[in-house]
């Protein structure tokens, strides 16, 4: 591939780069669908988080509120990664080689939550 050094723009859409043409092209939906809508969702979820933290949260509902916060955070992460970082529209191979290794984080999390509970019970309980 590196041998194809011809390097010019063939008008709109198809470009030939130093290391070959890019087969996959970018336009998926309008700017509203790709950028504005995810942005509105991020703003709304963040605003809801502030509302919950300042108005709804109290000593009695703390656990339920904290779980809600984590779920909202994961939804926001989904919007950033799939739309802003465009991962939703990438090839399957790229998508899964990024998403699958994240399971190791879940594994570490489970491991350390168990350890944290044990430490709490030993030191405090």
């Amino acid at each position: 591939m590196a041998g194809h050094s011809s390097h010019h723009d063939h008008g709109h859409g198809t470009k030939v780069f130093a290391d070959g043409p890019l087969e996959h092209h970018e336009t998926h939906g309008t700017i509203f669908q790709r950028i504005i809508l995810p942005f509105i969702w991020l703003l709304l979820i963040t605003a809801a988080e502030f509302f919950i933290a300042l108005v709804i949260k109290n000593e009695d509902n703390k656990t339920a509120v904290d779980i809600t916060f984590v779920v909202m955070t994961l939804v926001k992460a989904f919007f950033i990664v799939s739309y802003f970082m465009h991962l939703k529209f990438e090839f399957k191979g790229l998508k899964w080689s990024i998403v699958f290794p994240l399971l190791f984080i879940v594994y570490l999390l489970v491991l350390m939550v168990l350890e944290g509970t044990y430490m709490y019970n030993t030191l405090v309980g």
Binding site: L102, L108, M112, G116, M119, V124
Partner: peptide
Amino acid sequence: DAFTFSGLLIAYGVLRMSHE
């Protein structure tokens, strides 16, 4: 980099959990 930040945040979570 996501692994690095996860390591830091999970360490924070464990230390926080182990305190009353």
